Computed example of a mutant assay.
Amino acid sequence: MEGDCFNYAKKCHKCQIYGDKIHVPHLPLYVMTFPWPFSMWAMDVIGLILLKALNGHRFIFVVINYFTKWVEFASYGNVTKSAVSKFLKKEVICRYGLPERIISDNALNLNNSTISEVCN
């Protein structure tokens, strides 16, 4: 009788569409570990913006946190390595602590010895 029911369920169209399709054994649930907030940041420069701001700035330096999607930004006339290092010290490291990783597109003003010294 059990085999007949099993065969009927295999051929039944509604059983195939609406039936449970869970074919994995039950396992205990585990807490997934996520990286802590403000541990990984991405940084990039937006610009050259065609219309100058009132203060003459044409670039926007943006730093985004991966975990919380928090954004820190500033506008600059020119994004130099000293401006980037000052921004990182003041707006990221002093506020949120030293990040585990900073990801950039390896532009010279974003990836240089000055930035390495700031992180060290």
Rank of each mutant, 00 (worst) to 15 (best):
T114E: 14
K21I: 03
N78D: 15
K90L: 08
P35H: 04
E117K: 11
F38H: 04
I17R: 09
T80Y: 09
A83D: 08
S113T: 11
K86L: 10
T33V: 12
I46A: 09
F61T: 00
G47E: 07
V118G: 00
V45S: 03
I60M: 11
F34M: 06
S39H: 03
L29M: 12
C94V: 05
S39V: 02
E72M: 04
L98H: 02
T33M: 08
N109G: 06
L50H: 14
E91L: 00
M32C: 08
F87H: 03
F6L: 15
I64Q: 03
F6K: 15
E72K: 07
V62C: 01
K86W: 02
I103T: 05
Q16N: 10
C94L: 12
R95T: 11
M1C: 09
Y30V: 09
V24F: 08
Y96K: 04
V45D: 01
N65K: 03
D105N: 14
F59A: 00
F87L: 04
D4P: 02
L51H: 13
N106Q: 14
K69A: 12
E117S: 10
I46V: 15
L108G: 08
D4Y: 13
G97I: 10
F59P: 02
Y8M: 06
A9F: 13
G77R: 14
M43L: 11
E2W: 13
V24T: 14
D105G: 09
T80V: 08
K14F: 08
S116T: 12
Y18V: 05
A53W: 08
V62Q: 00
I93T: 01
I60S: 03
N106A: 09
L51Y: 11
I46Q: 05
L108C: 10
L54Y: 09
A53D: 12
D44K: 01
A83G: 09
L110C: 06
G77I: 14
N111H: 07
K52P: 11
S82V: 11
H57N: 15
N65S: 10
Y30W: 05
M1L: 13
R58I: 15
I46E: 01
T68G: 03
V71G: 05
F61A: 01
G56D: 13
N120Y: 07
K86G: 05
E72Y: 03
P25K: 13
K81T: 11
M40I: 15
E91R: 13
Y76I: 03
Y96G: 04
G19I: 06
D20C: 10
L110S: 03
C119L: 15
Y76E: 07
K69V: 07
W41A: 00
I115F: 01
R101Y: 09
P37Y: 04
T33P: 04
N109F: 05
L29F: 10
K81F: 06
F67K: 06
Y18F: 12
G56L: 12
G56E: 11
S104G: 06
K14V: 07
S82M: 10
H23N: 12
A53R: 13
S39I: 01
I93A: 00
T68Y: 03
N55S: 15
I49A: 08
Y66C: 02
I64H: 00
L110A: 04
Y8C: 07
F73H: 09
L88M: 14
N55M: 10
M43T: 03
G56Y: 12
P28E: 08
S75F: 06
P99H: 04
N55F: 07
